[in-house]
Amino acid sequence: MKTLRLTDDEITSWRRRWLVRGFVLGTLAFLPGVLLGVSAAWVFFAEFGPFAK
């Protein structure tokens, strides 16, 4: 089985790098969802809400 010899610093930066990647992807996935949800709610209430023209 192939193994790699890594220092503590290297393994820490490896972990951090993947944490940052996850965070970035999570943010990118989350924001459009929020925007979409807010826009959908806005349109819904504008069209069918109590103050719809």
Binding site: R15, W18, L19, G22, L25, G26, T27, F30
Partner: peptide, 17 residues
């Protein structure tokens, strides 16, 4: 290790935001 951290970031992002 990479998967654990990636998932932590992925799920933590919405929470933090």
């Amino acid at each position: 290790l990479a998967r654990n951290r990636f998932l932590l970031g992925l799920l933590g992002a919405p929470l933090v935001l």
